[in-house]
Design a protein around this nucleic acid. Structure first.
Lengths: 354, 354
DNA sequence: GCCGCGAGAGTTAGCGATGACAACCCAACA
DNA sequence: TGTTGGGTTGTCATCGCTAACTCTCGCGGC
């Protein structure tokens, strides 16, 4: 059916090994033979069977990526950057969505490992580090992104989520807000840390930390809109009503904003809103959303670099822990007057990433 | 290092084949033996090497997906649906972005074929059918999505783009607009057909078709915002100025809307805008965008079904040509008054798909 | 008492490539 | 003339698993 090395070798009266060597640029092959082989390869449009090669070399040139949701723009951007970092080196990306379900995530990890991936990149929705420990034991290369585990020595790339929470909250404090609420994710490390940043900022400014202002939710990445809207409705009932909200991610912030507007309140005059993620369409929203940029592109890129280094065996010893600085992008949801002025610059930025 | 069947067989004093048979639920294995094997498999947490299995069975349980851009929500949704359709059957999805570059696309196709994928799903950015013909010759299963080729017999799943163009245009005509412009994609079949639908609708209503109202662009999916903004600026200079625009996709429509608003004009009073794609954040925009829904989820799902049928050998004979009906979703960018009323329903919808 | 049969296990021969090493050819050198 | 050696090409064993037979044994039928 399809062509094998054997066919080419037979056609040319050579051995299979010789053909194999030509294809891998092995040095000890005569110029004449090399040309003949390449010629025939081209004629037949032959591509060596990567499966067979992998079996003997132990390298599959496959990299796995497991994320909570493929649709979420943050993970889509990470995927794009990761793909860009490795595709030129002959690797392919095999992606899988965990839907924020630890069980599904575990199943996918096992399944992908059975494919003998060269490396795995995971934004874990799990709280259990068992599988990761086993991967460490089996010296299976992997890199965690976005969500970290305190009690696990592993390569990690993500932003400083405590700083993210602090920055967002301090921005709101700087605007004169005093009743600042937070819609949080209790399910993962990023949520916990952003919350921590939030409380730290309040404390630093001697502002009270009110439990009723902190709404924690699950499934924040795959069911963001419902979760955000529900949480915001809950916040509107508090007394005193918050004059600002920092949301775990942008989709939740967007839903929160709509709940606010539907209640007849103004943004940012009555309630200022900050999100996290800096989605590429934040500029186009009904009220452009101030947000913390999560460096999605850089995360994918750095993860790719680390894992190439691991695969190529250049480094492995100490797990790298790359903490990127988040960046506050101010838009109309916190400061009405700057919104218009900002637009032109942002137009350019958004155009890049669609 | 890692465990092999050999190890289990040795431990249990059995032959490798017996272990293999147990793992594949082969009938002629004694109950006792089966239990012992499964027990040991569990103890060692063994997973058979899929690579090795693939090499002998000729089935890789890998499905490739090549799209113009991973970031584009339409393709992300297709990917999600496709993944959902096949993941339960043991398949993994290997994704690749062509960046709308035919050469890159061709390279990726070749590379993926070298991995002996069971099937390939492609939203092609190429005009050349050579590679697809070869895949047909080699009876390599594949399904085209979104973008079709007239001169190629192949499975296809997509929407009726002529109808999409017609629906959008007729909606604008029904609103009383007479100077309807179109920002188009000249690069792919979908663009050509939406344009055709547009002209058909105008003709059917005896409206003039003005060349200056039709702006065609390339790289509409990866550089949408710049392309949309430029095109819209060009349209604003036309005389008479258009009172409506139908855009090839939503990101271009969004940029067009901003150009319109920045020019001090109102939407929809001065210019009504219709997009295509029905992105999940259309409801949250500064002006919620009327759009044609492209059935992304259904496309991914149906593509998955077709390819499973092909792989499982149930059907192949006549290429299926699945043309889904697009659907017009009306929002504020064409009818100011319905915007508010629509919001609640849409909130629910968006929540589902984030 | 011979034969056939079916259940349950094992043997053999690859899948399509690669790694290590052996073998060959011919020029150069002792 | 025999030996050495660099440059080329080939042989053999494997990678981890599966398809297709083969083999063994106990049992029932004639």
């Amino acid at each position: 059916m399809t062509i094998r090395m054997k066919d080419i070798a037979r056609d040319l009266g050579l051995s299979v090994v010789t053909v194999s060597k030509v294809l891998r640029d092995h040095p000890d092959i005569g110029e004449e033979t090399r040309k003949r082989v390449l010629q025939r390869v081209k004629e037949l449009d032959y591509e060596p069977n990567i499966l067979a090669r992998s079996l003997v070399t132990g390298r599959s040139y496959l990299i796995g990526l497991i994320v909570p949701g493929l649709i979420h723009p943050f993970f889509a951007e990470v995927a794009k950057a990761l793909s860009g970092a490795v595709v030129g080196r002959g690797y392919s990306l095999i992606v899988s969505s965990s839907e924020e379900d630890p069980q599904l995530e575990a199943r996918e990890i096992r399944h992908l490992l059975a494919r003998r991936l060269d490396a795995l990149v995971i934004a874990s929705s799990s709280a259990d580090t068992k599988l990761f420990r086993r991967m460490n034991d089996q010296s299976q290369p992997f890199v965690l992104i976005d969500r970290a585990f305190d009690d696990l020595a592993a390569h990690f790339v993500g932003i400083d989520d405590i700083a993210a929470g602090r920055m967002a909250t301090e921005h709101l404090i700087a605007l004169g807000r005093r009743n600042i609420a937070h819609i949080s994710s209790r399910q993962n490390s990023t949520g916990v840390r952003r919350l921590q940043g939030y409380t730290e900022a309040l404390r630093a400014h001697k502002l009270p930390i009110r439990d009723s202002y902190i709404i924690s939710r699950d499934y924040v990445d795959i069911d963001s809109h419902r979760q955000g809207a529900d949480a915001m409705r809950q916040l509107l009932e508090q007394s005193p009503r918050p004059d600002a909200v920092f949301c775990y991610n942008d989709p939740m912030a967007i839903s929160a904003m709509h709940v606010i507007l539907d209640a007849g309140l103004r943004i940012p005059e009555d309630i200022a809103v900050v999100g996290c993620g800096n989605l590429n369409y934040n500029d186009w929203l009904r009220v452009p959303l101030t947000s913390i940029d999560q460096r999605s592109h850089l995360i994918g890129q750095r993860a790719g670099e680390i894992l190439l280094a691991m695969i190529e065996g250049r480094e492995q010893p100490t797990p790298e822990n790359i903490i990127l600085e988040p960046e506050l992008i101010v838009r109309a949801s916190t400061t009405a007057q700057t919104a218009r002025a900002k637009t032109p610059a942002k137009v350019k930025k958004a155009a890049r990433s669609t």
